[in-house]
């Protein structure tokens, strides 16, 4: 199918983009890599009046990776970050990126687009949440605001970003310990049926900075706080991990909007989420 007609602008200055968004609100949609937007345009599921292309705004395409973390302009491309020699400085980042679709898709996919799109089964939003990252938004009305990942995602493809706001950059802090990004997908390259990001560090023989995020199991990536709590200050051993997974499965039962569909039952997702987390924990110790 072919898209419904729309107008197109590719401004060279951020302010012009923000002006367009301020003027058009919901009628405008920005295009970043287009790897989620264009399929929706093609299916006529998205029918914007105006498509605003970010490709000419050079600043948005830059990114820096240090041992502190990734600061990525919204238009930084997944493939460029993935192939950057320092990508390992942010544990989990390369793994998350490599599980997005295929190389041919990642060559356009942007960091900002993936986060703004907020697919419940997407890897990058889950990583951002697990590592307590931040999202920077700009608009004419509100100026610049920084939103914690924990506050950013609100539901299936929903975020706190207002229609007139542009996501300009993403901050993913480097975790002091190890990070695993694991998932079960139908085929390599598909969105996850069940996925988990698991992180922790070990200091003085005990676990610190634990983080467990599930994705693909409900409307948005979810942080499993009570399961994390089991890990804090515990010794990294099989008993701890088992207790964590048991707690996780309990907590899972309380999740809202829990996915149960033709591809995988809710029972399956619940059980396998636990399995993935258990494996990740074990592989990291």
């Amino acid at each position: 199918m072919k898209p419904h007609p729309f107008d197109y602008a590719a401004p060279e200055a951020l302010d012009e983009v923000l002006d367009l968004l301020a003027r058009l609100g919901d009628d405008a949609v920005v295009i970043a890599g287009g790897q989620s937007l264009v399929p929706m345009l093609n299916l006529r599921l998205a029918r914007p009046e105006m498509v605003v292309d970010l490709r000419r705004i050079a600043d948005l395409a830059t990114f820096t990776i240090t041992d502190q973390g990734l600061r990525a302009g919204a238009m930084a491309r997944a493939i460029d970050v993935e192939e950057h020699p320092d990508v390992h400085l942010v544990p989990g980042l390369g793994d998350a990126l490599r599980q997005i679709g295929h190389p041919q898709v990642r060559s356009r996919t942007t960091i900002g687009g993936s986060v703004a799109h907020a697919d419940a089964a997407a890897e990058l939003p889950a990583l951002l949440l697990a590592l307590s990252g931040q999202v920077v938004l700009h608009s004419v009305a509100r100026g610049e605001r920084t939103v914690e990942a924990a506050d950013f995602f609100t539901g299936p493809m929903m975020t706190v970003r207002e229609p007139d706001e542009l996501l300009t950059s993403v901050w993913i802090p480097a975790h002091p310990g190890s990070v695993a990004v694991v998932e079960v997908a139908k085929r390599p390259g598909d969105f996850a049926m069940v996925g988990a990001v698991v992180a922790y560090a070990i200091a003085d023989g005990v676990i610190s900075d634990p983080s467990i995020v599930l994705f693909g199991v409900s409307g948005q990536p979810v942080r499993m706080a009570s399961a994390e709590a089991v890990l804090v200050g515990a010794v990294a051993n099989a008993n701890t991990f088992q207790a964590t997974v048991e707690q996780l499965r309990e907590e899972f039962g309380l999740l809202e909007g829990f996915r149960d569909d033709v591809y995988a039952t809710g029972g399956y997702r619940r059980q396998v989420a636990g399995t993935l987390v258990a494996r990740a924990l074990a592989s990291m110790s």
């Binding site: 793994d95 490599r98 190890s178 990070v179 694991v182 998932e183 494996r279 990740a280 990291m284």
Partner: peptide
């Protein structure tokens, strides 16, 4: 994909 994630971890 599990193995990918784990190894690179």
């Amino acid at each position: 994909q599990v193995s990918l994630g784990q190894e690179s971890h």
